[in-house]
């Protein structure tokens, strides 16, 4: 399990990183936390000729308020989701998901930007970024652009990031006092990829749901929003009947594939059970 040979470049600025990538073409890879990339290299599943290390690009760090959004630098480590007060205050869904992401040492090194850019359909953060209606800030050879999370995830490990583009930051709407979040997942062991996971953020008008965004992971080729389910909830109180209706509606949102150890019907069942539990928790948070 040793990687194929490659050369290494440590970028200090976004421009340096982009230029290095442009110079090397398709054979280059950016490395951030590397917690998924390094095993892929060790297994020779990927074999770039050059690795461009962006861990020392200061522009990719930092969490700050920008208008009505919280801008979270791509290099923000998973652990900071647990420790940074700004995250707890303005992006509590990320805070709620963070303890479920792998294990402490992985969280010390793994980055939010890396996780979202990889777009592993079983990962927590890509799905929560989707639930949060985040904007993804991208830098590329032709300049900066913003992509909405709803348009960012395209297919299995495929995103709106073009080759040579770098994810710079995630911008999430600031959490408001009339909002509530809930998150949970079903994983065989602590820190494993979940059989199914679900996070949501709802805006309440008195006791009625004015707006809700629900995202699930480990249910398909990409993190999935449950749009029919959301529609079934908007305008209603979160009672047992409404939760049951949402669980039914989930059938229109998901079509999990068969896998060798989790039959599709079982995953659908688990998704419904989990949805019900997380909605129940959302109700309790009132």
């Amino acid at each position: 399990m040793k990687a194929r040979a490659f050369s290494y470049f440590r970028a200090r600025t976004i421009d340096e990183a982009l230029a290095a990538h442009a110079g090397a073409g398709d054979e280059a890879r950016f490395i951030a936390g590397g917690q998924s990339l390094v095993p892929a290299l060790a297994l020779r599943l990927q074999a770039p000729t050059i690795l461009i290390d962006i861990n020392h690009v200061d522009e990719l760090r930092g969490i700050r308020r920008e208008g009505d959004r919280l801008r979270i630098g791509a290099l923000t480590r998973h652990r900071e989701m647990l420790t940074e007060p700004l995250i707890a205050e303005f992006a509590p869904l990320l805070r709620a998901a963070a303890p479920f992401v792998a294990h402490p040492a992985i969280r010390n090194r793994g980055t939010l930007g890396g996780s979202v850019a990889l777009a592993d359909p079983a990962s927590e953060f890509p799905a929560m970024v989707l639930a949060l209606d985040a904007e993804i800030e991208i830098a590329g050879p032709s300049g900066r652009r913003i992509v909405k999370a709803d348009e960012f995830f395209i297919d299995l490990f495929e995103t709106a990031l073009a080759p040579g583009e770098l994810l710079v930051a995630i911008r999430v709407p600031l959490f408001r006092s009339n909002q509530r979040i809930a998150f949970d997942e079903l994983a065989r062991r602590r820190g494993d990829y979940a059989l199914v996971g679900c996070g949501m953020i709802a805006t309440f008008d008195q006791h009625r749901i004015a707006d809700i965004r629900i995202a699930l992971f480990s249910v398909g080729n990409l993190p999935m929003r449950a749009i029919s389910t959301e529609a079934a909830l908007v305008g209603s109180r979160l009672d047992a009947e409404r939760i049951a209706a949402a669980q039914t509606a989930l059938g229109q949102d998901l079509a999990p594939a068969e896998s060798d150890d989790v039959p599709a019907a079982m995953r659908m069942h688990l998704a419904r059970v989990l949805l019900g539990r997380v909605l129940g928790r959302l109700g309790e948070a009132a």
Binding site: R10, G34, V38, D53, N55, P104, A105
Partner: peptide, 11 residues
């Protein structure tokens, strides 16, 4: 604490 297997020495 980090995994020494998940980073390259040059890093």
């Amino acid at each position: 604490a980090v995994h020494a297997c998940l980073m390259f020495a040059v890093q």
